[in-house]
Design a binder for these strands. Structure first.
Lengths: 108, 108
DNA sequence: GTGCATACTTGCCGATAGGTGGGTATGCCG
DNA sequence: CGGCATACCCACCTATCGGCAAGTATGCAC
């Protein structure tokens, strides 16, 4: 739980798992709502936790890409059922969220 | 992710899944580090999300128990692989955490 | 010289998550 | 009468999380 704690980490894992080694800029574009700071920060955490590997090609302009370590792959696997669950029950869950949202806006 | 977002929710799900209908006090004792406020709050959220069912026996002294809904059960199932992953890779992961902890305490 | 692209870094700031310490109602037990 | 047990509720406080804006180093193209 701690390891996937972070608003965008599951998404990062997902994209890197899908696309193989992924450049920083690709991630930025893929996950449009994330800010630079947070994306980098979460990448560093994932790296520190041994889930992704950062490869710096030492070129100019800078080129860096991120890939999954074996550990990262296994985590991605373990997340699949949860992702499936989310997709399957999207309807029921998002309905509840919608209700809660209207309730909140009416209340505040 | 949103639905399991909460420091203790996976644990709650786990205990309720294991033990069937569980009284509030049992949970409190099972998850010793949680505070009343947060436990109740997370239970209410799980209930609002349709994952657990609250049964109030209207007795005095109060008796209430919590059980999983079908949706809750399916979520619990989807969490199993993740839990397994955690158990299997506990060693590698907690080692990283340990290192980070000493690093932090030395730095601050 | 000016601008552009890349992959970051830094400072500030508001929202929120979770913890603490109190309080509630009810009935039984001594 | 005082104390205990249960399942909560409330006010307050702090740490952290994540977003925004601006800045950095380097080389190339114009």
């Amino acid at each position: 739980m701690r390891v996937v704690a972070g608003k965008w980490k599951p998404l990062i894992l997902y994209f890197v798992a899908q696309g193989g080694p992924t450049r920083y800029g690709e991630l930025r574009r893929a996950i449009r709502d994330v800010s630079d700071k947070v994306l980098i920060q979460q990448l560093k955490e994932l790296e520190a936790d041994g889930l992704v590997k950062r490869t710096d090609y030492k070129e100019v302009p800078p080129r860096v890409d991120y890939s999954l370590t074996p550990l990262g792959h296994s985590l991605a696997q373990a997340l699949v059922p949860l992702c499936t669950w989310g997709t399957e029950h999207m309807a029921e869950v998002s309905q509840v969220f919608a209700e809660r949202a209207t309730w909140n806006t009416r209340r505040r």
